[in-house]
Design a protein around this nucleic acid. Sequence first.
DNA 1: GATTGTAATGAGAACCATTCCCATATAAGG
DNA 2: CCTTATATGGGAATGGTTCTCATTACAATC
Lengths: 162, 162
Amino acid sequence: MSAAESVHEQAALRLGGQGQRYTPVRRTLVTTLAEAGRPLSIPEILEATGSLPQSSAYRNVTTLIEAGVVRRVTGVDDHGRFELAEELAGHHHHLACAVCGKVEDVVPSPRLERAMDEAARVVAEEQGYQVTGHQFDLVGTCPACREAAATSTMPSARAVRS
Amino acid sequence: MSAAESVHEQAALRLGGQGQRYTPVRRTLVTTLAEAGRPLSIPEILEATGSLPQSSAYRNVTTLIEAGVVRRVTGVDDHGRFELAEELAGHHHHLACAVCGKVEDVVPSPRLERAMDEAARVVAEEQGYQVTGHQFDLVGTCPACREAAATSTMPSARAVRS
DNA sequence: GATTGTAATGAGAACCATTCCCATATAAGG
DNA sequence: CCTTATATGGGAATGGTTCTCATTACAATC
């Protein structure tokens, strides 16, 4: 069975476990996120899918999150971004452009993962938290925005949001 | 000079560099953030300071961010959270409670930092980004929320937000 | 120490991403 | 088929954040 099929199977399974259906809209969302290979905002999802109503996008993304198929990623701009859960897409990290907000996937090195796991263990001990996951995001400027910055002096983005 | 004094000095210096004043409201914000020792949301800031108008809080936090005194932290709930910039408060990471949204500071181990720096270098090479910083957040459940969860079966938080 | 220009303040309106509501449509089971 | 439960989508409501503007405080000059 191909990777793509297994993703849909997993999604159907997880939705079914919550008494919910794997409808065409939900299949479209899963396909879109799987093909993007990076976290997408709702506007990006709407653009990629063509004619999906905004309310359906939000509602079904929420449903998929509750079923553990999709995960919300916190980026650097106003928009929440969404990607397939790690159980479906594999563990990875993110690289966000501080200027345009675009987020890309990054595959972690074993060495980095070991260091992070150790950090989680230490913190769990010291502060009494039950650590369930981690998020490691690199922040920088993407090639396109560096180009733009070099060409014109641009006004800085809004500060609190940005 | 004490550490607290140096923070205010730095803040005044940076604001001055942008032709802005270190006013009482701004000093209050800096003091509040410095004493908290963890990122605060606007509601938390308002509560801590007593009678600060919301609009002044938002406007001056923005001003302080533009001056490089304060930094926005992306947490796990609806509210943006704010802390002193790393140049004033030192480099550190965060531990967020997935249930109540509270965020605590965590000091990183040298080993973890080295691994992260290496990861940044690799990514910069591979994807052409200019990496300017990183964010490493642990996600878990704080002692208080674990206690609450053990006592009563609670409804899960909203999915897309949260 | 009055004056005058500039920046800061605070109350409320505006904005916009996200959520909610509800009438309609669609699927599943008897 | 009929029935019943769930999904859909258009639009209204929500709420965190930003903007506006009249007022106030500050700083420098006369």
